[in-house]
C-alpha cells in the first residue's frame, strides 16, 4: 500500500514538475522545476530498488549538471517580450518534435503490450543477495567491459572537444607563476643601501 502511494506521489510530482518546466515563464523557475523532476525520478529509482542509480542521478544531474544550467540561465538578461516573440518561428519545429516523441511513445507502448522483450530472458539476472553496486560492478567490468570502455572514450572525446571549443589563448595577460613567487627570497628583492643625501636612487 505504502509503495503504491509513494509511487503515485513521486510519479505525479515528476509529471507535474516536468509540465511546469516548460510552462513557467521565468527560465530560472523552469530549471528549478526540472531539478524537482530529477529529484523525484531519483525517488522512483529508490522504489524499484536501484538505490545506486538514484544516488548517481542526484549527484550527477542535480548536484552538478543542473547547477551549471542554473548558473547559465541565472546570468541571462531575460526579456519576456522577446521570449514570446519567437513562438511562431519555433512553433513548427516544436510541433514536429512533439509529433516524433508522441509517435515513439505509441510505438514503445505498443511493443511493451505486445511483449516483444521477455523480461525473463534478461541476459544477466541479478541475484537478490548482491547489493546494487556489486551487481553492477560485476557486470560492467566483465561482460560489458568493452562497451563501458567505449562509453568512457566517448566522454573523454566530449571533454577534450569542450575544452578545445571554449579555450582561447590570450597573449595579452601575464599569468601568475606560483613556483617562481614561492622561490623568491628577500635577498632577491630587497636591497639595503646607504644613500648619500642629495643624490638620486639607482634603480
Amino acid at each position: 500500500m505504502i509503495q503504491t502511494f509513494a509511487f503515485c506521489l513521486f510519479a505525479a510530482v515528476v509529471i507535474l514538475s516536468g509540465a511546469l518546466t516548460i510552462l513557467s515563464r521565468n527560465p530560472v523557475h523552469s530549471v528549478l522545476w526540472l531539478i524537482l523532476a530529477f529529484f523525484n525520478a531519483a525517488g522512483l529509482m529508490v522504489l524499484v530498488g536501484a538505490e545506486f542509480i538514484a544516488m548517481l542521478l542526484v549527484i550527477v544531474y542535480v548536484g552538478a549538471v543542473a547547477v551549471l544550467f542554473l548558473f547559465v540561465v541565472m546570468m541571462l538578461d531575460i526579456d519576456f517580450a522577446e521570449l514570446r516573440s519567437g513562438f511562431v518561428r519555433y512553433g513548427f519545429f516544436g510541433l514536429l518534435i512533439a509529433l516524433i516523441l508522441a509517435g515513439e511513445l505509441i510505438i514503445a507502448t505498443g511493443a511493451w503490450s505486445a511483449g516483444a522483450i521477455e523480461l525473463a530472458n534478461r541476459t544477466a539476472p541479478i541475484s537478490a543477495d548482491l547489493s546494487n553496486i556489486e551487481a553492477m560492478g560485476a557486470l560492467i567490468y566483465s561482460k560489458y567491459l568493452y562497451v563501458f570502455e567505449a562509453a568512457g572514450l566517448v566522454l573523454l572525446v566530449a571533454l577534450i572537444g569542450a575544452i578545445v571549443l571554449t579555450h582561447r589563448e590570450r597573449r595579452d595577460v601575464r599569468p601568475q607563476n606560483i613556483s617562481e613567487q614561492v622561490k623568491r627570497r628577500p635577498q632577491d628583492a630587497v636591497r639595503n643601501i646607504n644613500q648619500p643625501i642629495g643624490q638620486g636612487v639607482d634603480l
Binding site: 528549478l32 531539478i35 545506486f52 544516488m55 549527484i59 547547477v67 542554473l70 548558473f71 541565472m74
Partner: peptide, 23 residues
C-alpha cells in the same frame, strides 16, 4: 548500503540554498 553516496548527493544539494538566495 550507499551511505557515502547519499552523503555526497545530499551535500551537493547544499549549493542550491546559496545559488537560489543569491539570485
Amino acid at each position: 548500503n550507499v551511505g557515502l553516496l547519499y552523503l555526497l548527493a545530499a551535500s551537493s544539494l547544499g549549493v542550491y540554498g546559496v545559488i537560489i538566495s543569491g539570485w
